[in-house]
Design a protein around this nucleic acid. Structure first.
Lengths: 170, 170
DNA sequence: ACTGAATAGTTTGTGTACCAATAAATGTTA
DNA sequence: TAACATTTATTGGTACACAAACTATTCAGT
């Protein structure tokens, strides 16, 4: 294939990105059937467990989501008794989020969120093929970082892109 | 970086996929501000213009979306007078979708949906770098296809994954 | 021709995901 | 200190995205 035609390659790359979207979405639905929680919900309690008690804006930052979205997710998790919300004593604007015992139990019993088809498929590959995918995505995210100005909706709280990629904060 | 550790690479690949998600989402919002239509809406009328009149299930197939989702998008486009829905005379179960003059006018005046930051960034790269990204994503979608059973909600109508990827129909 | 399966599109309900506007608390500055 | 701005989380509203259930139509087999 690799016909050296910029236009064609860009179009195919965009199509492939859409494909990946699709599959990741399906995976989210699959996790839901297995655990009774949706992908984002599992993701949230994983983050909470890893970090310990944290404020809503911190959680949103670590999940790359807007606070409004996280509020909805927390509503559902709270209704199920998996997390608690408490107003901070020192700063009453802040809401601290933490796991309940039930939530912690569920996290432990969830045998790796990542054990979905994508991760599984990736893990079955050899180092050479993984390297190809890795470099391609890495290059892609680099150009995304270069062209993507921060939308500045995160306020001032540190954004903490996990792998230390991303530019300096405003 | 290419430290040959399967576990680490898989984790970083997943993180990068999430990054791409984020940026594509932002792009969709940006297109919305410029055209008054959302990303999926623009995508839909682009597909309709490219293919001409087509049925709802065909449109859904070409967009990799469930028919239910497309129905909602069509509702909004129809309300704005950009598309029309007509029941087919030969098969009254079928609904044919086509652009109105207004819709065609809007498509022409939309200077390339793809002129977003991602495509822009990609187009600014040279063939060698594009090749890296292309191969990485291509390999990724291959393993996704291999592990991803068709959800089988498209019925029998030809699905037409544009680049000739995807399995034979049931 | 008639019953039953399959198909096409839609409705209904849940869950993201975001923006705009808001309320309450804290900070800043005149 | 009092007016103003900022921060933090929430509510209200729109738009996806999908599953399950439903209606209408067509097809298949007897």
């Amino acid at each position: 294939m690799a016909k050296p035609k910029t236009e064609t390659m860009v179009a195919e790359i965009m199509d492939n990105i859409r494909r990946v979207f699709q599959v990741v979405n399906e995976q989210s639905k699959l996790v839901e059937r297995e655990t009774g929680l949706t992908g984002p919900q599992v993701w949230a309690i994983k983050v909470i467990e890893a970090h310990g008690t944290l404020r809503v804006s911190e959680l949103a930052g670590k999940m790359y989501l807007h606070p409004t979205t996280v509020v909805g997710i927390l509503d559902r998790l709270e209704k199920r008794g998996l997390v608690t919300r408490t107003r901070s004593a020192t700063d009453r604007r802040v809401v601290d989020v933490s796991l309940t015992d039930e939530g912690r139990r569920l996290v432990d019993h969830t045998p790796e969120v990542a054990s979905n088809k994508i991760t599984h498929g990736l893990e079955s590959l050899g180092i050479p093929e993984l390297t190809i995918i890795y470099h391609g995505l890495d290059r892609l995210t680099q150009i995304l970082d270069a062209t993507n100005l921060p939308p500045a909706f995160f306020g001032t709280s540190e954004i903490n892109l996990p792998k230390g990629k991303r530019r300096s904060q405003p």
